[in-house]
Amino acid sequence: MRAFEYSSPRTTEDAIRLLSAEGAVALAGGTDLLSLMKDGAAAPSRLVNLKAIPDLTGAHETDGGLHIGATTRLGPLGEHRVIRESFPAVAQAIAGVRSRQVLSMRTVGGDLLQRPRCWYFRAGFGLVPMHDGQSMAKTGDNRYHAIFGNAGDAVFVNPSSLAPPLIALGASATVLGPDGERTVAVEDLYRTPASSDESEFTLGAAEIVTGVTIPMRSSSNATYEIRNRKGFDWPLAAASVAVSDGGARVVLGHAAPTPWMSAAAAGALAGGISEASAEAAGDAAVADAAALSGNGYKIQLARVAVKRAALAAM
């Protein structure tokens, strides 16, 4: 294991300064980063712990909505009154994590920015693994890989539990870096890399997510996940639905290299949720899905996840 520095700043300013060094990486709950380091898939020269920064933790209501600090743990967040009463889509996604150990450590920022679970990536072949000039995952075993946004060589899936519900609820993320603070829609944190040299996130050097804000808009919302095991297991398909006076949003997880927004499914729900519109939303969501060699079943699961998320939101 590469020797690394460990620092634990008390302010975001110090954190940004410490993160500006080459090879520095932010450490939140560590549920992903530490396993990447143990697997040799990450070898940072410096870890900057964000959990000791008081400003970054906790959830509170503001004029703009419910603000959730980036190092707020998933477990306590799932118990938050506003989350339980107004944003069941978030509470259900948190419940889907299934592991008390992970729930007690994983943070909101860490969940949004966790690296893909692609087995080629985790084995050290890179995020866009290539073999003899071809996408290794595309030509290899891709049973857990993308059914959307997979025309290029990158076919991993975004694993975040919170991204689908937060995007469905129209949440924004606050990003802080050497050039100051900016606010982006949560969906804009993600991109599809063309090669293993590129990041799947849009964050710049030494930028961190300091929090997310969910607008206090009344909506019918829900998340539905489909897993092989009932216990701790990555979903094979996940979908979040939010329908409000302002319109509908449908976001799929574990379906594409980024959280996947389906405008077609949202359109099917624009007139309200019913058995028929939920069914139509499921069909619409997967109308342009494209199976790889071994993941056709995921199209069916994505369809069902969207339908059931809509019905759960009804």
């Binding site: 084995a123 290899g140 075993d141 216990g231």
Partner: peptide
């Protein structure tokens, strides 16, 4: 699960080498 390209086992860990939990 074996990778056709390398012949390596793709799930030689306990994340995707799935053992049943008590809920199952």
């Amino acid at each position: 699960v074996f990778d056709p390209h390398t012949g390596q086992m793709l799930n030689a860990e306990m994340e995707f080498y799935k053992l049943a939990g008590i809920e199952d």
